[in-house]
């Protein structure tokens, strides 16, 4: 793989991988580190890579890296306590209602299980289809649908409470 090809892959997938880890961990620094490490590993293995399914490979690498990190830091860190943040494109024009809505959503999403949240936000924020998510994460379509349903149930339940 040439440097230019690697740069193309980086430009194309770095943000998606970083967002995916952020959806799971709610930790920006960790998401950046994991995405960075994935691409460093990809560069090291560039001579042995097939161009097909690079995106799936990157998601797999990112998941493994995240799990390893999570295991190491399990005692020190609780991801559930991290505050999940979403910025709005309309931030400058945000009125109080939108600000309140955003805060509410962030709170609900922070409480959502990381597996459900990642699948849910990959679908809602990144616009990936259920089958794409299943393909990238190495899950069955049914498993992804189940996580989506669980996410919806939780969000509706929590929104009703608050």
């Amino acid at each position: 793989m040439k440097e230019s090809e690697f740069k193309n892959l980086y430009d194309k997938y770095f943000d998606s991988i970083r967002r995916y880890i952020y959806y799971r961990s709610s930790d920006q620094a960790l998401a950046t580190d994991v995405a960075q490490n994935c691409f460093l590993k990809l560069w090291e293995k560039k001579d042995f890579l097939h161009k097909k399914n690079i995106k799936s490979l990157l998601y797999k690498m990112a998941t493994d890296e995240f799990i390893n990190h999570w295991r190491k830091q399990k005692r020190e860190r609780e991801f559930a306590n991290e505050h999940f943040e979403i910025k709005s494109n309309e931030a400058e024009n945000e009125n109080q209602e939108i600000i309140n809505y955003r805060k509410k959503m962030q709170l609900i999403l922070s409480g959502l299980g990381e597996r459900q949240r990642s699948v849910f936000l990959m679908n809602k924020m990144d616009g990936l289809t259920i089958s794409e998510i299943a393909n990238y994460l190495g899950l069955s379509i049914k498993a992804v649908e189940k996580r989506m349903t669980q996410a919806w149930k939780y969000i509706k339940l929590e929104a009703g409470k608050k």
Binding site: Y10, K87, N89, E90, L121
Partner: peptide, 25 residues
């Protein structure tokens, strides 16, 4: 409403991918 909010929303990271490219890659 939620779909619209999430679709327009984004995650703001402290460093952009271009900055990381310059610093690391």
């Amino acid at each position: 409403k939620m779909n619209k909010f999430l679709k327009k929303g984004y995650i703001k990271f402290s460093k952009s991918k271009d900055q990381i490219w310059e610093e690391v890659f």
